[in-house]
Design a protein around this nucleic acid. Structure first.
Length: 327
RNA sequence: AGGGGCAUGAUGUAAUGGUAACAUAGCGGUCUCCAAAACCGUUCUUCUGGGUUCGAGUCCUAGUGCCCCUG
């Protein structure tokens, strides 16, 4: 009985979510200093070596001695990196933090990554590039037919997907072709087929701010990235001539500069595009996080002024959440 | 100052005198192995005044603003 309880307590984590450029990094580091935390990044780009400026990795100085995990752990040309791999690496990192008696603070803007840690997502059938290529060709040939097939084999999934959503239609067919079972039979956020629990029980904080100010911050931050050498960083990656379909290369801040290197637009246009794409990304992040009712939101519009207040509040909620946990 | 041209949403454009349209931005949403990805939905428009006409973004007229040419 006691060991079981011990096990649940071991699984607690603190998370900080929110759109890009809303002080998540600083907030997390300050919180870590107060509660004895170590930081686990939940960011799909910070995992890559060499993508530093564009992904806004905190510098060693900014980290203030707080250990950071899941930053710089995959090479850019690692095509097999995916959410489930992220989850495995994060689990290891969190286990390490707990063994040191520290508090894991998961920080990041990749909603799916956070959900992979806090919901029992299944990921039962790994991707299969051969099957996928075949399905993709069939879809391009005749999209309606592909969607019709999904309607036949997995009506439940088909019903919630738009026929134009090629990626998900293909994924659903891929799962069916590889397993003989419809994707919908593998469960949803709240239960997976194997009946496993969520890996961790989170205390979820969200940071948000006035939209206009957030957009201003994004624009300024992109300018600052350019001053810090984003162009050179992107050039290095461009010159390494990786396969062009690598997911990492489609990250914001890089793909736009690659267009500039390819002569498709001016540098000014590329920078404007980075700003716009980042703003839209922030909006999508908010759409994702807004529907997560577990999140306790904080307004970081005037972060400089309310920092103390926010951190004190977070600390109080944390102590409540952490009460009774093992030493 | 004279001559010419233009004026349509936040922006760029379309519409033989006959239901004002498209793209982009903006806003909202979806999300179970590429997720900083991919996909879906949606608000807003004829410069001002007069006139012709059954009917005007379109034609006439005055004004206002912008652009080009000449000086």
């Amino acid at each position: 009985m006691e060991t079981e309880e011990q096990a649940t307590k071991q699984k607690r984590i603190v998370c900080i979510a929110g759109p890009t450029a809303c002080h998540k990094t600083e907030c997390a580091i300050e919180l870590a200093k107060r509660i004895g935390g170590e930081i686990v990044s939940a960011d799909s780009v910070q995992v890559y070596f060499g993508m530093d400026i564009g992904s806004a990795k905190p510098s060693l100085e900014e980290r203030q001695g707080i250990p950071h995990h899941l930053i710089d752990c995959v090479p850019i040309d690692s095509p097999e990196f995916s959410v489930s791999q992220y989850r495995e690496l994060a689990k290891e990192a969190i286990a390490g933090i707990c063994s040191r008696g520290n508090v894991p603070i998961v920080v990041g803007g990749s909603g799916l990554y956070l959900n992979a840690l806090t919901y029992p997502l299944g990921f039962a059938i790994p991707r299969n590039d051969e099957v996928r290529a075949r399905l993709s060709a069939a879809y391009d040939e005749h999209p309606q037919a592909a969607f019709q097939r999904l309607l036949d084999v997995d009506p439940e999934t088909a019903k919630r997907l738009h026929p134009n959503d090629k990626k998900r239609v293909l994924r659903a067919l891929e799962v069916y072709d590889c397993s003989g079972k419809p994707l919908s039979s593998f469960g949803d956020d709240f239960q997976n087929e194997a009946g496993e629990q969520a890996p961790f029980e989170p205390l979820l904080f969200g940071l948000n701010m006035d939209r206009a100010i957030l957009y201003e911050r994004i624009n300024l931050r992109v300018d600052r990235m350019m001053q810090q050498g984003l162009l050179e960083e992107a050039r290095r990656i461009y010159d390494a001539k990786f396969a062009s379909d690598l997911p990492a290369l489609r990250s914001i801040g890089y793909q736009q500069l690659f267009s500039y290197f390819d002569g498709e637009c001016s540098l000014e246009q590329a920078v404007e595009q980075i700003k716009q794409d980042t703003r839209r990304f922030a909006k999508r992040q908010l759409t994702w996080f807004r529907r997560d009712l577990r999140i306790r939101w904080f307004d970081a519009t005037e972060f400089g002024q309310c920092k103390e207040h926010i951190l004190r509040e977070m600390e109080t909620l944390f102590l409540e959440f952490w009460k009774g946990t093992n030493e």
